[in-house]
Design a binder for these strands. Structure first.
Length: 642
RNA sequence: GCUCCCGUAGUUCAACGGAUAGAAUUUUGGCUUCCGAAGCCAAAGGUGCGGGUUCAAUUCCCGCCGGGAGUACCA
């Protein structure tokens, strides 16, 4: 049981006992100033008015009740402060018991089972197979991996899906560039095929914009593909897979892997769209437009207000507000197909894909792909929860899918479709200049990446830059790839996912301060201490040791560390529930900072007495474990040396 | 036009409606006979504007000002 529950339960009892009132909610938080204690509640301030008392007086009465309750095991002090906060200070006994728990539960410390095995289909990365992955995709993948690990850690069964859009406009454009035109690029000049495709795609996109003949050619190609023209589809499939393979290699070098690749072409070939469309057509909120700009298209209503209540002018506007799912030429839009895809994810279709195991040496786990002829495999469909890590720009489209599920009567599924949106990644001017891009005239200090313009930082290049930078500073060393990945992943996870971020190469290459290597460094430091001391963890001696520690005077810097360690399980829950990896980053940084201060002012191997030395090693060992568990969730390896 | 998001130190980011708005970076000054200086300690520097809601507003509401995105038979 978490401490905040202990507090809120007791507060409720107190109010019931003292005033015969049932409180529905009690706000418990960690005060920002450590002088106020470890937990505090504002319950007296919030409820004072109802009791016609001064908040401070009310708090004092509740305090008396709490002091008589049997809470000494948890708290060494409970007091009233400020305008009427009730503050709780944890007892050393409790804090020590938590350290003990860390070492006993080891890699499971902080884990939970609120998921009780429920299935989550987590979709992330999803690079269109027409170019190399860039740092926007990087942010997506890294957030995705955090969610995968965090939700597994709290007891869900998570399957990671990578959606490969091998039919749409973007791949067709690339195919046109590759097959039909000699654009003057030499594929031998590139280190990877997807990098070559990057330049081809940018070039052909620019050309198409200014050439109606090319536009027509592209449109024909798209229709042929959608009709599954044999020759074209074959070419397309080969091209897409070649690029997909390169994209996966990029992610795999960062230790990011997947359970299943879902091809858009499989959805098409399994006729999932057709089955879905039959269901949709019968729904009253899905309609065929008979007038206006969208004449001949099928649309999904995006608003609940009825068209009948509007005048004709407003009615026209309403049509524009709705979402087109089938074009007038009968080809479904991305959103249309996405509805079918999500129906499958939730197991709402009568169909399932066939599966094929992908042979891959770089993957950490078994990887499957969808095929038309292959094996049956039941565990990918029929998920309880669907999480899509997708750019904030697609909120409207996802919303259409969500609404549609609701319209079809799948309320629960509609609620359980969770769009994890994240802000855009821009390049700083400094970075753009370094990469040789010209700045626009209306310079705002940042520029947007664009596949069509070929503007962006490829993940592969970024990885290489970080590794070179590390080598030039520290020379080559055995764990350099782990440190490199820490730099990259932490840099992407440290922000609120909601925020747009400005990517600056120089900042990103930093290994000082609030960075991954700082955390890894602290871990390496704890490791080296424990190695030197030949510290061995075994349950019996630990129990005995903790009894002795209770009599020790614990210095304040050690106390500060203790008061961070115990929060880890709370932070795991909070960052998972809020889809907020940055909370874990902040927590780990705080932990490491406190530990490094402690390390700096308290000798460990040469401590004053054997008992103090034992205690400090015990503390060090638990810090090491927590860092390791936390970094794991962020997708970062905790290294023993660097 | 409509909808959504964002405006916080020079810069990049924090702050479930809470008590003295925190970090990093930059700059300046200190800390290695001793456990890893990728470290520690210290100084300096801030809520776009105007109203409202309440015990309490960076946070919620309204109006401005400034930035971004969506609303495309693109994805």
């Amino acid at each position: 049981m978490f401490i905040d529950e202990v507090i809120s339960d007791n507060i409720k009892k107190a109010f019931n006992d003292l005033y015969g009132r049932n409180l529905s909610q009690v706000g418990v938080e960690h005060p920002q100033n450590p002088l106020w204690g470890d937990y505090s509640t504002n319950v007296a301030l919030v409820t004072a008015k109802n009791f016609d008392k001064q908040p401070f007086t009310l708090a004092k009465e509740v305090l008396l009740w709490l002091q008589n309750a049997d809470l000494q095991d948890y708290f060494e002090d409970i007091s009233v402060a400020g305008p009427g906060f009730i503050n709780f200070t944890l007892s050393n006994n409790y804090l020590l018991s938590q350290l003990l728990l860390v070492l006993k539960e080891a890699q499971d410390f902080g884990a939970g089972n609120i998921g009780s095995g429920k299935k989550i289909a987590l979709e992330h990365s999803n690079v269109n197979p027409n170019k190399a992955a860039h740092i926007g995709h990087l942010r997506n993948a890294v957030i995705g991996q955090f969610l995968e690990r965090a939700y597994e850690f709290v007891g869900y069964d998570v399957k990671v899906q990578y959606y490969s859009n091998d039919l749409g406009v973007q791949v067709s454009t690339l195919l046109l560039g590759m097959e039909e035109l000699n654009l003057g690029f030499d594929s031998a000049q590139y280190k990877k095929f997807d990098h070559y495709a990057w330049d081809i795609y940018a070039k052909i996109s620019q050309m198409i914009d200014n050439d109606t003949h090319l536009k027509k050619k592209l449109a024909d190609l798209i229709v042929k593909l959608d009709n599954r023209d044999n020759e074209i589809s074959q070419k397309q499939s080969e091209l897409s897979k070649k690029i997909l393979k390169d994209n996966l290699a990029t992610f795999s070098s960062l230790g990011i892997d997947y359970d299943l690749i879902v091809y858009e072409s499989s959805i098409k070939d399994m006729l999932m769209w057709e089955e879905t469309f039959e269901i949709l057509k019968k729904n009253e909120r899905v309609y065929l437009a008979t007038e206006g700009d969208s004449k001949g298209c099928w649309l999904v209503k995006m608003s609940d207000s009825s068209r009948a209540t509007l005048n004709s002018e407003e009615s026209v506007n309403r049509i524009e507000e709705d979402k087109i799912i089938v074009r007038s030429n009968g080809v479904p839009t991305y959103t249309g197909k996405d509805i079918a895809y999500h129906m499958w994810k939730f197991g709402l279709l009568n169909k399932d894909f066939k599966y094929n195991k992908v042979i891959s040496t770089s993957q950490g786990k078994d990887l499957y792909e969808t095929v038309v002829v292959g094996y049956d495999k039941k565990d990918f469909s029929a998920s309880d929860i669907v999480m899509d890590v997708i750019d904030v720009k697609q909120t409207y489209a996802i919303d259409a899918v969500k609404k549609t599920l609701g319209y079809l009567g799948y309320k629960e599924q509609s609620c359980n479709l969770i769009h994890i949106n994240y802000g855009h990644v821009y390049l700083s001017n400094n970075t753009a200049v370094k990469l040789g891009y010209s700045l626009e005239e209306d310079d705002r200090g940042q520029i947007a990446m664009s596949g069509r313009k070929g503007v962006g930082v490829k993940i592969d290049d970024f990885i290489e830059m970080v590794e070179e930078s590390l080598k030039s500073r520290f020379g080559d060393f055995p764990n350099i790839k782990d440190v490199r990945n820490a730099v990259i992943k932490f840099d992407m996870l440290r922000y609120d996912t909601f925020q747009d971020i400005v990517f600056d190469v120089d900042d990103a290459l930093s290994v000082k301060g609030f960075t991954g290597p700082y955390i890894q460094y602290t871990h390496a430091r704890t490791n080296s201490l424990l190695e030197k001391a030949r510290y061995i963890i075994d349950d019996e001696s630990l129990d005995y040791a903790v009894k002795r520690f209770k009599k020790l005077e614990i210095n304040s810097s050690a106390q500060d560390v203790l008061k961070v360690v115990y929060k880890f399980p709370e932070v795991v829950m909070q960052s998972a529930k809020q889809y907020a990896p940055n909370l874990m980053c902040v927590y780990l940084y705080d932990l490491c900072q406190k530990f490094n201060s402690f390390y700096n002012d308290s000798p460990i191997l040469n401590a004053e007495t054997p008992d103090i030395k034992d205690f400090r090693l015990f503390l060090t060992a638990s810090v090491k474990q927590v860092i390791k568990n936390g970094l794991y969730l962020l997708g970062v390896n905790a290294v023993d040396r660097m």
